[in-house]
Design a protein around this nucleic acid. Structure first.
Lengths: 148, 148
DNA sequence: CCTAAACTTTCCCATTATGGGAAGGTCAAT
DNA sequence: ATTGACCTTCCCATAATGGGAAAGTTTAGG
């Protein structure tokens, strides 16, 4: 099967198949005499595995680890589970960050009349002098006082 | 004030201040005779505004729009609100996607014994032949049958 | 006054994952 | 033989950020 067929059969674009090969996620397939890549149904299984892992949000690096575990018949399921759990944690952290943004924005939007008048609590919030963790370094010089 | 001070006062790194200038998000500040960028406290306000917008997850492009509205005294708060609401929608969509991943993964991890045995529902799921929307193109040729 | 440290400048490169597109070779069907 | 659909490699682009080099500037200490 050529790369286009493997792409259609796996859901991974031809472009990405070549990319995965170039970064070593999958091994280079054999080639026809005319240099076309040739894939087996086994290769397609691997590509689907990758596709599914990516769909679940695993980075390519972690996908590679999962692939390694998958192909290691003597793996411990504990290793896989650990990978999955740490990934869940990362996802949940990102969710929290996004939820924080949403709740702040919802509050601001709720307070905004949303009519033709210019006054806007959303802009006011964005423009509010936020207390920074580290205050400016020792008194800045006034601008325009330096001459060389 | 030099760029380092503006960075400390705004929470935006010097690197990013230059970057924002290069993409036109902020206007080029005047320079000293020795070519150092000079910032006013007004510039710092702008940078803080950007920082806050970025913290709330607005893309740089949308941040630029917000900045434009902020500086337009005759804006309608409805425009700002619309921007905010559409941003909220995007965030919520991303949250949903992440939550889908998490719930699938939690289910799989729950089903995984996580011990020393190799059998693992997580890997089984990843390896499961997923039904693809578009099936492979008309019957692939068997491999290795082509000779030129 | 000189030197060293701290700062600034520009420029290039890396990241993550994906796609677009060009230029050229190959294959299959008309 | 021509045409259209493939394939190949190579370069570039995205979004936002940072790292680091090489060179110039400023400032503080001695």
């Amino acid at each position: 099967m050529n790369i286009g067929d493997a792409a259609a059969a796996s859901g991974v674009s031809a472009k990405m198949i070549r990319h995965y090969e170039s970064i070593g996620l999958i091994s280079p397939p054999r080639r026809t005499e005319s240099n076309y890549r040739v894939y087996s149904t086994e290769d397609v299984h691997v590509l689907r595995f990758i596709k599914r892992a990516r769909t679940l949000g695993f980075s390519i690096e972690k996908t590679g680890m999962l692939l390694g575990l998958w192909q290691d018949r003597s793996r411990a399921s504990a290793d896989v589970k650990e990978l999955a759990l740490s990934h869940i944690s990362e996802l949940e952290e990102r969710i929290c960050e996004l939820q924080d943004m949403v709740s702040t924005l919802k509050h601001l939007a709720h307070c905004c009349s949303g009519d033709g008048r210019p006054d806007c609590p959303i802009l006011n919030d964005l423009a509010a002098p936020t207390a920074l963790p580290a205050p400016p370094r020792a008194g800045w010089k006034k601008i325009g006082t330096r001459h060389h």
